[in-house]
Amino acid sequence: MSVQSIYDHAPLGAIIRFSDGTPRPPERHRKKLAAWEHHNSSGRLTRKQAERRVASTVISASITLHAGDYGGGGVVVLRIHRTFPVDSDLSFVMTECPKVGAVHVLDRPGDDADLVYLASHRADAEEWLTRHGYPHAVLREISADETAVQGRTAT
């Protein structure tokens, strides 16, 4: 499966691992390790954006991964997202699919929506929405068809 295949077949909410294929440096090489971790990590698939044209520029299709949150005491101060074009030279692997019956909480309707929360069931999604302000949110239950992806490895 290529990055284009991840874009075409991986469901929102899937955990995607990416790598440049280089070996992990030793812990004592902190700068090399930080650079390596920038190209070898994972995240939850939160967005698929189709190719688009802005004036005379064509922006290729891309995927966005939620890489992590920083903060404390239950307050998120910084949310990290990584966006990769479908022609990225990194290798991608889908390591986990969301479970059937889980619910996507999308920030808005349409194909350009971002996944803001992956709930275990509809009541969880509705309860989460009462605490977080997304006035145009859409709830979408995950079907068995979405999770039936063949060949989950990408290079």
Rank of each mutant, 00 (worst) to 15 (best):
P25E: 10
K48D: 04
D112S: 15
D145R: 14
T57S: 12
E96M: 11
V105N: 03
A67Y: 00
R140V: 13
P25T: 11
L106K: 07
Q150K: 14
V54W: 03
V3C: 02
G74I: 12
G74T: 11
Y70L: 11
R24F: 04
E96G: 05
G73Y: 11
L129N: 04
H38E: 15
V149M: 15
G13A: 11
G21M: 06
S56K: 12
S19E: 09
R24N: 10
E96P: 03
I63P: 03
G101V: 11
R53K: 15
A148Q: 13
V103R: 01
R122I: 02
T46C: 09
Q4C: 00
L65V: 08
E127D: 10
S88M: 08
E27W: 05
A113F: 01
E141G: 09
M94E: 09
T147Y: 04
S60N: 10
A61C: 08
D87F: 08
S19H: 08
E37L: 15
H29T: 03
V3S: 00
V93E: 07
A119M: 04
A35R: 14
V93F: 01
G74S: 12
H132C: 02
R53S: 12
V116C: 12
S5G: 13
L33G: 05
G68E: 05
F92E: 00
E146L: 12
Y134D: 05
L90E: 01
G43V: 07
S143E: 12
E96I: 01
G13N: 07
R28K: 14
E146P: 03
L90T: 01
V149F: 12
Q49M: 13
G73L: 13
Q49G: 12
L129G: 02
H39L: 14
P25R: 11
M94I: 14
W128I: 02
H81M: 09
V75D: 04
Y134P: 00
S60C: 02
E126I: 01
L33Y: 06
S2H: 09
V76Y: 09
V76L: 10
R79N: 12
V138D: 03
A119T: 03
R122E: 10
P135K: 13
A144P: 08
D111I: 04
G133M: 09
K32Q: 15
L139S: 06
T83G: 00
G101F: 07
R44W: 04
E27H: 10
N40C: 08
K99I: 07
R30D: 08
A55N: 13
H132A: 05
G13H: 06
A61R: 09
E146I: 05
H104R: 14
P26H: 12
K31R: 13
I59N: 01
Y134A: 06
D8Y: 04
H29G: 01
E27L: 13
C97W: 01
